[in-house]
Amino acid sequence: MLEGKVKWFNSEKGFGFIEVEGQDDVFVHFSAIQGEGFKTLEEGQAVSFEIVEGNRGPQAANVTKEA
């Protein structure tokens, strides 16, 4: 699992990017966010995740919000 911070997330469109120190930003789709209820992320929020190869390159999977 990697750790990063949410760079930005558009809850209307359901996607955004996660910043990872020393690496390129990683695309995140709302469907990759773990948990119940409305799936969104806040700018600057700490998250842990895995990287998988998507249709358009690397993207986040199994995203969990850090306490």
Rank of each mutant, 00 (worst) to 15 (best):
V47S: 00
E3L: 14
I51D: 02
A60G: 03
E66R: 14
P58W: 13
Q34Y: 05
N55F: 12
V52I: 14
Q59A: 12
E19K: 15
G16T: 00
G14W: 00
K7T: 04
Q59H: 11
E36Q: 12
G16V: 01
N55E: 13
D24N: 14
G4H: 01
F30Y: 15
E43A: 14
V26I: 12
A46K: 14
T40M: 10
H29S: 05
D25A: 05
G37L: 05
E19G: 13
G14L: 02
V63N: 00
A46Q: 12
N55W: 09
E66P: 14
K5M: 09
E66H: 15
V47H: 01
A60N: 01
E3A: 12
G37H: 09
G35Q: 10
G57E: 03
K7C: 06
K13I: 08
E12Q: 12
E42C: 12
D24S: 11
V28N: 03
I33P: 02
S48P: 01
G54Q: 03
D25C: 03
Q34S: 13
F9T: 03
V6G: 00
G57V: 04
L2P: 04
E43S: 15
I33V: 10
S48A: 13
T40H: 10
E66W: 15
W8A: 05
K13W: 07
E3F: 15
K5T: 13
V52Q: 12
T40L: 07
Q45F: 03
A61C: 13
T64E: 08
M1P: 04
H29T: 04
E3Y: 14
G54Y: 06
G35L: 04
F15T: 06
V20G: 04
F49P: 01
K7S: 08
Q23D: 07
E19R: 12
V47M: 01
I18T: 02
D24W: 04
G14T: 02
K13V: 06
A61W: 11
N55A: 15
T64G: 07
Q34M: 13
E36Y: 12
F9M: 03
K5H: 08
V28C: 15
S11E: 08
G57L: 04
T64D: 08
E53L: 11
K13S: 06
I51M: 11
V6R: 01
G54R: 07
A61P: 01
M1I: 15
G35I: 05
N10S: 15
V6F: 00
D24K: 15
I18E: 02
D24M: 09
F49T: 02
E42P: 06
S31H: 09
E21S: 12
G14A: 03
H29Y: 02
N10C: 11
D24I: 05
G35S: 11
G14C: 03
E50S: 14
P58I: 11
F49C: 04
E53K: 14
G37C: 06
S48H: 11
K7Q: 04
F49W: 00
E21W: 08
G44Q: 07
G35E: 15
F30Q: 12
R56F: 05
G54F: 05
P58G: 06
F9W: 12
R56T: 09
P58Q: 10
V47Q: 01
E43M: 13
S11T: 14
F38H: 10
S48Q: 14
T40A: 10
F15P: 02
M1A: 05
E36W: 07
F9S: 03
A32Y: 03
G54N: 10
I33Q: 03
A60H: 00
V28Y: 03
K39F: 04
T40W: 12
N62V: 06
K7M: 05
V63K: 00
Q45M: 10
A46V: 13
I51G: 02
A32Q: 13
S48M: 15
S48F: 13
L41M: 07
G35C: 11
A60W: 01
D25Q: 05
E3M: 13
E12M: 15
Q45E: 13
A46H: 13
P58L: 13
G22Q: 09
V26N: 02
Q59M: 15
T40S: 13
F38K: 12
D24C: 11
M1Y: 11
V47C: 08
F30E: 09
E43K: 15
V20L: 13
K39D: 07
V26H: 02
K7Y: 01
V52G: 05
F49V: 03
K13P: 03
G44P: 01
D24F: 04
D24R: 14
T40E: 10
N62D: 05
N62T: 06
E19Y: 06
V20Q: 11
I51K: 14
G37K: 09
E66L: 15
W8E: 05
E19N: 12
Q59I: 13
F27S: 04
E21K: 13
S31G: 06
Q34L: 13
D24A: 08
T64W: 14
A32C: 06
F15L: 05
S11K: 15
S31I: 02
W8L: 05
D24T: 10
K13T: 07
K5I: 10
Q34V: 13
E21V: 12
T64A: 12
V20P: 03
L2M: 14
F27N: 02
S48G: 08
Q59E: 11
L41N: 02
E43H: 14
V28K: 01
Q59W: 08
A61L: 09
S48W: 14
F27W: 08
M1E: 06
G37P: 07
V6W: 00
E36C: 10
E12T: 15
F17S: 06
E53H: 10
G44R: 07
R56C: 07
N55P: 14
D25Y: 00
N10Q: 05
W8V: 06
G22Y: 05
K13D: 06
F30A: 11
A46T: 11
K5R: 12
F15S: 04
Q59R: 15
